[in-house]
Amino acid sequence: MRLTSITKMGGEAATPLPRALTEEIILPGAPAALPSKPGTVRRLATLARSPVSAARGMGFGIRSIIGSDERTRIHATEEAPWRMICALEIASPWGDFIGTGWFAGPRTIITAGHCVFDRAQMGGWASTITVTPGRDGAEKPFGQMRATKFSSTDAWIERQDPDFDVAAIHLPADAAVPADIGWFGVAAYPNDKLTGMSVNVSGYPGDRGDGTEQWWARNRIHRLAPRRIFYDVDTMGGQSGAPVYVLPDARTPPVVIGVHAYGVGGSAAAGQDLNSGPRMIPELTECIAGWIAADAG
């Protein structure tokens, strides 16, 4: 049986509000996750700016490209943090999909819950996911790994609750994961720390290079809900599961504060043209810590 675990989060059918977050709860990233050259991340913003523009609005609804398309292609994918971000090729009973994942531990890839389990779209659990860290077109600088073991939260599996749309891909023990690839830190930050922050989202969209090219964008956090984070960072289908991360300082590995999941608003109630994903809250960081520990054990 491929369904190996559902991580219980302690809640009953009605999801309680997350406990009050007054301090930072952090899973540290790997030292190898430090950007290879100080300032690399910011300088890359000037490279290969997308010539594509999209007029704001299409006459209805909401769009995942907000205003002009500000995504930038990343070519130096063998460097951190880009190498810790993975293209996902997802095979499921009802068809194939692409998404994005990121290293949270030596053998643990975090992604959106709907990249590993979706009853309506996939027919249940994914069958296999092929993980390619730092893919850049035909280049696969760290090879490929095939995974068949996945976990998600009970709130996603049982209720498809978008606030808990998070999952883990467990790489097999014999997977050839480069030792120095590194992993992101994960943090549940309080509102006052997140307010006004700029966040980065980098992943593998299907409208560029058929899901083989990594594209990055950065912009502001616009709205915080207790379990969701809303931002005007451009994304496109295939970037589900991408890390929503911040760079605290040059000596600290990048820290993930959310998992990108919804490209066209994510919440009708929000009433804003914003992309979104589940926010890292203590319950999720504990869940992710458990997945990492299980893979290490």
Partner: peptide, 19 residues
């Protein structure tokens, strides 16, 4: 690769591959 690029309701930012 097929994806949702706009709409009146939220949808996952995943892309389906045609068979």
């Amino acid at each position: 690769f097929v994806m949702v690029t706009g709409g009146t309701s939220p949808s996952p930012d995943i892309a389906a591959r045609t068979d």
